[in-house]
Amino acid sequence: METGAAGPTGTAGAAEAAGAEAAGAEGPIRATGESGPPDWVGLPPGLLRLRRLLLVLFLGPLALVVDIPLAVFAGPVWAAFAALPLAGIVWGWRMTGRNWRSWRYAERADDLLISRGVLWREETIVPYGRMQLVEVTSGPLERKYGLASLQLHTAAAATDATIPGLAPAEAERLRDRLTELGEARSAGL
């Protein structure tokens, strides 16, 4: 299954990477003007690759575990049940792609915008002055894939402003910039 899955992962990942690079090309020009639509920046493809790999690693063996005993003990017709996890992989593959594409953020002159979600959409605006703490976290798997998450905290615990799957350098740049802007515009409670 490893070899079977590796091909699609590689090609699809490369395709997504190319798409993201094309999108990222206009990223560096980040105008900070208030007027006009915000300059959205998408996520690098690492997160998508990691999520798809996890999906395949989880559902692929499940298909085998379901399939082999059924084929041996209940007859080959029953082995069709293995299609369920496989269908899950295909569905999950598309869903992770859609979800990954929906994540984007924009730095404006005075606030940070985060937009995400396909079915359940959420758009958050956090003024820099309200930022109490900026956190960069990176778990073992994320580190392996060169990813880091950025989380903003305000005095309201309900504020849920997280950007997952950033490149570590970008996460650190954002953290430093946000901290700096936050200090300059600090407003407290």
């Binding site: 079915l119 758009e123 956090v126 309200r130 309201a156 504020t159 402003a161």
Partner: peptide, 19 residues
């Protein structure tokens, strides 16, 4: 006193163009 502003929209809400 506003710390952050959020806009949320579920699938059924989007169907009726509300948020």
């Amino acid at each position: 006193k506003v710390q952050s502003v959020r806009l949320t929209q579920g699938p059924w809400e989007r169907c009726w163009r509300v948020a």
